[in-house]
């Protein structure tokens, strides 16, 4: 087997284009995922049993079936129904790009919702009770205490979930999108150099995951900054109050 470096060099710009689309897909689906996960998780921790049924079924479906089925259900499935094709949704659903973003968003939302539920349930009771004692109502408590704390707690596992979504985004290539994997497959159909191109794509995925891990380290620091208090100087305090000793 002859390893062909020139074919990698020639096609690197194309692979980079593909990587850009991959990043876009991961970013937008992550955004949709978090927005959807929020209500799902809050319903899931509800005290009323029948409220918990919908988020439970949603999470069960999206975590129990392959992502490939989900993307085909949205992309090909939607076109089975004439009323969808005649509705206002069709301009969006006829685009493979939006089908991918929607599917990935729905998919990752199920996983994020579970992470968020775990995080919410692991907030120390005392903090909630303290918030109640100072007279906070539920929306305020949610905004000031529960959600910031939950995001901090789930941040490391959320990072993992984003990496999994990055890997899952390769399935966009099955609905004609030229993401990193799709681009690699298209190049190979012509050059017949599977090892060179697939492994180059693999290395690019690896670099993207390393960047994502780095980004989440920073986010983690930000959300959990109360735990690193010695490193932050109380700048906005009245200078007279700062202990000079």
């Amino acid at each position: 087997m002859n390893w062909d470096w020139t074919v990698i060099g020639q096609n690197l710009p194309k692979l980079m284009d593909g990587a850009l689309l991959t990043l876009e897909l991961v970013f937008f689906s992550g955004l949709i995922g978090v927005l959807l996960a929020l209500p799902l998780a809050l319903l899931r921790v509800s005290q009323t049993p029948w409220v918990r049924v919908f988020p439970y079924a949603y999470i069960f479906f999206f975590r129990g079936t392959p992502l490939l089925i989900q993307i085909f259900l949205v992309y090909y499935g939607a076109s089975q129904f004439e009323w969808i094709k005649e509705s206002a949704l069709w301009p969006i659903l006829r685009e493979p790009y939006w089908c991918a973003v929607i599917t990935f968003g729905l998919h990752t939302a199920a996983y994020i919702a579970e992470l968020l539920r775990g995080a919410i349930q692991s907030i120390p009771r005392g903090e909630i009770e303290a918030a109640k004692v100072v007279g906070m109502n539920y929306p305020l408590m949610l905004r000031r205490i529960i959600l910031p704390r939950a995001f901090g707690i789930m941040m490391p596992s959320y990072g993992n979930e984003v990496i999994l979504m990055l890997k899952g985004s390769a399935l966009a290539s099955t609905i004609t999108l030229l993401d990193l994997t799709g681009m690699a497959r298209t190049i190979i159909a012509r050059t017949y150099t599977p090892m060179e191109i697939f492994l180059s794509a693999g290395v690019i995925y690896l670099i993207i995951s390393a960047l994502i891990i780095g980004l989440f380290r920073l986010l983690e620091r930000y959300f959990n900054r109360h735990q690193h208090w010695p490193s932050e100087k109380p700048k906005n305090l009245d200078p007279q109050l700062i202990d000079k000793s």
Partner: peptide, 26 residues
Amino acid sequence: TLFVRGMPELLLVLTIFFGSSAVLMA
């Protein structure tokens, strides 16, 4: 673990299927 956990499973399936012939024959 580093390489495999950072690589999409789909890419792995494709690499093994389309790349293995060249490697095995070599």
